[in-house]
């Protein structure tokens, strides 16, 4: 995939996330995303879009379980990756 195509794809994904993850009606289903969940998705996306290298770090960190629960995990990720 060329850099150009990858970029277009990621921006389209960003547009999608901007709408589907943060907008739309919330009716409090039996499962509903929390604010921390949304933050987590965004943080991951930002890492992905900013550089391939940090995206790899992110993937390793999630695979090794270094990113724990969203409350505890966010600061860890922030200090390690950003």
């Amino acid at each position: 995939m060329t850099e150009m195509v990858a970029r277009e794809k990621n921006v389209a994904l960003l547009d999608l996330l901007d709408r589907i993850v943060t907008k739309g009606v919330v009716v409090y289903g039996d499962v509903t995303l929390s604010v921390a969940d949304v933050d987590l998705i965004y943080l991951g996306l930002k890492v992905l879009l900013t550089s391939v290298e940090t995206a790899d770090q992110w993937k390793r960190a999630t695979a090794e379980g270094r990113i724990g629960s969203s409350e505890a995990g966010l600061p860890v990720v922030l200090s390690h990756l950003l």
């Binding site: 709408r19 993850v21 009606v25 919330v26 009716v27 499962v31």
Partner: peptide
């Protein structure tokens, strides 16, 4: 009317309940 990502219910009855509980909001939308 679009719902937010990952809106889940345990049963069809719970979905119906949601349609009834939020009827006015959904209808006006």
């Amino acid at each position: 009317v679009p719902m937010r990502f990952c809106t889940l219910f345990q049963s069809e009855d719970r979905v119906r309940q949601m349609l009834v509980d939020h009827n006015s909001l959904l209808c006006s939308a």
